[in-house]
């Protein structure tokens, strides 16, 4: 039919359709305006070519009403497309609450993914159809970018910070996964496939990957091995903030500010503990910068998050300022 030539990308996620709706509307507008200008310019060029008999009376060198009209029309069109694009965009920040969280780590030159159950894969990502998936991205070295064209999602993985990208795959199949941010010699080989499976196939795929321990369990082991539990444990002698249920809760700081204990806060608290000190505690924690790598940080993060899921009724009371 199309001789193997592709004109349109596949649509395989919940947002692909709405992004494409904007794209095609904008395309129609651009084509219409482009055609109009082409007809106008070519028409003038032919009609008013030198020596033609066209009527040239009434020529003008300016026209305020006309100039105002096209300025305002341009503004209106610009604002419409701006608003449309922005409304679709801000959804990126609001993943559905019941999403499966997969840790994604970029390094020169591969993607490594770890599922909540501990299953690990390289340059392959298996996800269930119809279920929200959050990929929590980090980078070991340079900036990479997680890009699945069929899902219309892209997010840079910047070293030193975590970024989330979410999607709901709608069509089972295999889709390209690319690194979109130039990352060095083998940039073009850094990628692979996202495989979208029906729920039952996904479950059997997970099962076939062997019974690894879950990410949170690995994180818990690491938490004890690094000695974190010595101070942050429930029965420790050193006075350090307890961490049960801390994730997602507000934390009062010594400088009288309050922050939400999100991924950035937890990450900084491990790597740069003196930056934001919980009120009522001494800045005695050593930095773990250089002692844990990005993959281990992701395990610790999964463990800390799991503490919140286990005890939702246990608020971060211990963490708050005495008064």
């Amino acid at each position: 039919m199309s001789f193997g030539i592709r004109f349109f990308p596949q649509e395989a996620s919940s947002i692909a359709g709405s992004v494409d709706a904007l794209f095609y509307t904008l395309l129609a507008f651009a084509v219409a305006l482009g055609l109009f200008l082409t007809v106008l310019v070519v028409g003038y060029a032919v009609k008013y070519r030198i020596g033609s008999a066209a009527d040239r009376t009434g020529a003008r060198a300016r026209s305020l009403p006309l100039e105002m009209a096209w300025t305002i029309a341009s503004l209106v069109m610009a604002f419409i497309f701006f608003g449309w694009g922005a409304v679709l965009f801000v959804r990126r920040d609001r993943p559905p609450p019941d999403a499966v969280e997969i840790a994604g780590l970029g390094k020169q030159w591969m993607w490594e993914f770890r599922h909540p159950g501990g299953q690990r894969e390289i340059n392959e990502l298996h996800v269930p159809v119809g279920k929200a998936v959050v990929v929590s991205l980090a980078s070991q070295d340079v900036i990479h970018s997680f890009y699945v064209p069929a899902f219309r999602v892209k997010q840079d993985a910047v070293p030193g910070r975590t970024a989330n990208v979410w999607f709901i795959a709608t069509q089972p199949g295999r889709y390209h996964l690319f690194c979109a941010e130039y990352c060095g010699t083998q940039h073009s080989e850094m990628g692979g496939w996202v495989t979208v499976l029906a729920p039952e196939q996904y479950a059997s795929w997970l099962g076939s990957q062997g019974e690894g321990e879950s990410l949170a369990t690995s994180g818990g082991k690491l938490f004890r091995a690094l000695g974190c539990s010595g101070c942050h444990g429930n029965f420790s002698k050193v006075r350090a903030p307890g961490l049960d249920g801390v994730f997602g809760q507000p934390v009062a700081l010594a400088n009288r500010q309050t922050v939400i204990a999100d991924e950035r806060y937890l990450r900084d608290s491990i790597l740069v503990p003196n930056k934001e000190i919980a009120a009522g505690y001494q800045p005695v924690m050593p930095s773990f910068d250089g002692l844990v790598d990005e993959a281990e940080l992701q395990m610790l993060m999964a463990y800390l998050k799991s503490l919140s899921l286990q005890s939702p009724s246990f608020p971060a009371a211990k963490n708050e300022a005495p008064q």
Binding site: S18, L26, A30, A86
Partner: peptide, 21 residues
């Protein structure tokens, strides 16, 4: 004009997420 109109696609946030880089 063709280049400038393509700029509108890139300025529209949701489309830029797809076509950026």
């Amino acid at each position: 004009t063709f280049g400038g109109l393509a700029g509108l696609f890139l300025a529209a946030l949701a489309i830029d997420v797809h076509v950026h880089d």
